[in-house]
């Protein structure tokens, strides 16, 4: 247990440092660019080019929130304070809603969509890859080209294809949104049903793009393990194949967890596009709205939230991995 505690604190430390680095990147990247969006927006507002409602309010908020008239270091301190308070100011695209409000209403949709979809895709992909490695023959010959093909369709492409086939042509599912456009969120069975129906296409398009790569990885991992020395040894001590297969798949699956931790960033990125294509009311669609509306506070907050969510997912996976793979503990004991 002591080894595991070491591992845990090491990972926790790494998580904390990464989090700080993510904060800094999120703050500094936009300000390093030739056309600093904060400055651009402030300048635009100061000149009074836009005279829509609330411009003055936004402008004043800006000066206060981003302290653009103060030195960089001080700006950063203020930025961190604001982030910790959850105060990201007003959204430009969705004025008079605050950024906090916009994010809060979309983040639940994203978590409820992406988390299960990535897990289901991972499980299905690994099962199929393991079966391909074990059954070989026709199953393998059919599944592998299909997986390679699937893994090469970009996330947005898959979403568009599913949209056209199942929503536009077959009309089995609605084309967009998280629930019927004529509904108000409540607990009625109609609303729940509507949410379930709207959930299917974005969900399965994320699952499908996840399956391909996972199946390919699991297959080669399992083939590698099937040829490992311990398999031969176990066979020659008379252990049944069924038992040996258990060893093999357990061992092949463990690196796949690390693989998931490493690629979850890419997956989340892909899944955002599924949201956009289906106008799912999550962070992905929020990003699109913000980008089209030139809404810097919203972009900045969304990217920060997505980064933090990804970091938490990676951290959770690594903690889980350390728990189930004894090799991690052994490495810590050295």
């Amino acid at each position: 247990m002591k080894e595991y505690r070491n591992y845990f604190f090491k990972k926790l430390g790494w998580f904390a440092v990464t989090l700080v680095a993510a904060f800094i990147l999120n703050f500094i990247l936009p300000r390093l660019m030739p056309a600093d969006p904060v400055a651009a927006i402030v300048a635009r507002m100061a000149q009074g080019q836009t005279d829509a409602t609330g411009v003055q309010a936004i402008y004043e908020q800006y000066i206060e929130l981003f302290a653009t008239d103060k030195p960089m270091v001080e700006q950063f301190v203020i930025y961190v304070q604001n982030v910790l308070r959850g105060d990201f100011g007003y959204s430009i695209a969705e004025y008079p809603r605050t950024v906090n409000d916009v994010i809060r209403s979309s983040i639940g949709w994203t978590i409820a969509l992406q988390f299960p979809a990535i897990i289901v895709g991972w499980v299905l992909g690994n099962t199929l890859g393991a079966l391909a490695a074990y059954l070989k023959g026709n199953f393998d010959r059919l599944l592998m080209p299909l997986s390679i093909f699937l893994s090469n369709i970009p996330a947005f492409g898959m979403a568009i294809i599913m949209l056209v086939i199942f929503a536009v042509e077959l009309k089995w599912f609605p084309v967009s949104g998280g629930y019927g456009y004529d509904m108000i969120p409540n607990n009625s069975p109609e609303f729940v049903w509507s949410v379930i129906v709207h959930y299917q296409l974005p969900f399965w398009s994320i699952v499908l793009i996840t399956i391909g790569g996972q199946a390919i990885g699991m297959r080669s991992m399992a083939i590698y393990e099937l040829n490992a020395d311990y398999v031969k040894y176990a066979r020659f001590l008379g252990i049944k194949d069924r038992k040996i297969i258990q060893y093999v798949f357990r061992n092949a699956m463990l690196p796949q967890i690390t693989g998931l931790a490493l690629s979850i960033g890419t997956m989340v990125g892909g899944a955002l596009f599924a949201e956009i294509i289906f106008s799912y009311p999550g962070i992905g669609t929020t990003l699109l709205t913000a980008s089209l509306g030139g809404d810097y506070p919203l972009i900045s907050a969304s990217t920060l939230i997505i980064t933090i969510m990804t970091l938490i997912a990676v951290f959770a996976l690594e903690i889980l991995y350390g728990f189930i793979d004894p090799r991690v503990k052994a490495a810590q004991a050295e």
Binding site: D229, Y247, N251
Partner: peptide
Amino acid sequence: ISYIPQAAMNALNPTQK
């Protein structure tokens, strides 16, 4: 008949007691 393999270093499943 029993057997001691050539590569005993890897003969044991790494994730099993």
